[in-house]
Structures are given as structure tokens and as C-alpha cells.
Amino acid sequence: MTYNLFIYIIIAVAAVLAVTAGKMLTSAIMLAVASIALSLLLFNFNAPWAAVFELSVCAGLITVLFISAVSLVKKEDESLKESRGKFLLLPFLAAAAFIVFSITLTPWFETLSGHVKYPAGEFKVGEIIWKHRATDLLGQLTILAAAVFVIKSVFAKRSEQ
């Protein structure tokens, strides 16, 4: 439990740093740190497959994508001010709400956990993916095909210009 708390604090702090960082590069790297911490959390929840995917895709691929996008649009990097004025009170309110909720909502979560319903049997991950959730694979195929054609249609203009 202490270990989980420690990891949660790392994720939250990394997320806050990603939001408040002045440079976009720092933001992207902080996001990667949050991803790595999340994958440690997934390992701790005894979900190694999901953790490996999180580590390789979210912490690896997505960070690379973000960094390349940042380097493409680097010129006006720091000139953009954030419009924090309107939302100045929001973080403090959120912090207060978090503290209050952590005291008051814990019993509610206990009642919610009273409704828990256990599954009929224990299956392996591969079994679930290929037998019980085979339509998800069709969904993954659909979304990958969609992504290919999106990239194709977005960057089709380049050759004409």
C-alpha cells in the first residue's frame, strides 16, 4: 500500500509538472515519467502484459511522437502565455476538495465495494483476448486502418504544394 501511494504521488507530481512546465519539451518528458510510473503501478497490480504495453507504447512511442512534434513547431515555443487568470482559484479548490473527499468519500467507496461481483472463472489473458473479446481485435484493426488513411489524407497535400 505504501508502495502504491508512493507511485501515485510520483504520477500526480509528474502530471502537475507537465501542466505547469514552461517548455513543451519538459512537458513531454514529464508525461513520459508519469507513464513509466503508471507501468510500475500496473506491474504492482499483477498486470504484467498491460504494464509492458504501457511502457513501450505510452512511455516510448507517444513520447517520441510528442518530441518530434515539439521540434517541428519549435519557433514560437515559449511565447504563448497561458490564460491562468480565469482559473486561478481552481487548483486551490481542487486541493481542498481532494483533502475533504479523502476523508468523507472513503466510507462511500467502502459501500461501493460492497457491490462487487466476482467473475465466473479465471481465464488467462490470451484466452480472454482471443476467445471472449475477439471483436476488440476487429476494433483494433478498424482503428489502425482508420489511422493509416487519416495520415494519408492529412499529408496528401504536401506533394501538391
Partner: peptide, 17 residues
């Protein structure tokens, strides 16, 4: 609901393009 979710995401990706 999860099948609904994933195809909805695929639909969203195509429609914004």
C-alpha cells in the same frame, strides 16, 4: 459497452479527418 467504446473511437478518428 467496451465494444461500443472502441468502435466509437474508430468512428471519431475517421470523422475528424
Amino acid at each position: 459497452y467496451f465494444t461500443l467504446y472502441i468502435f466509437m473511437e474508430a468512428l471519431a478518428v475517421t470523422s475528424f479527418s
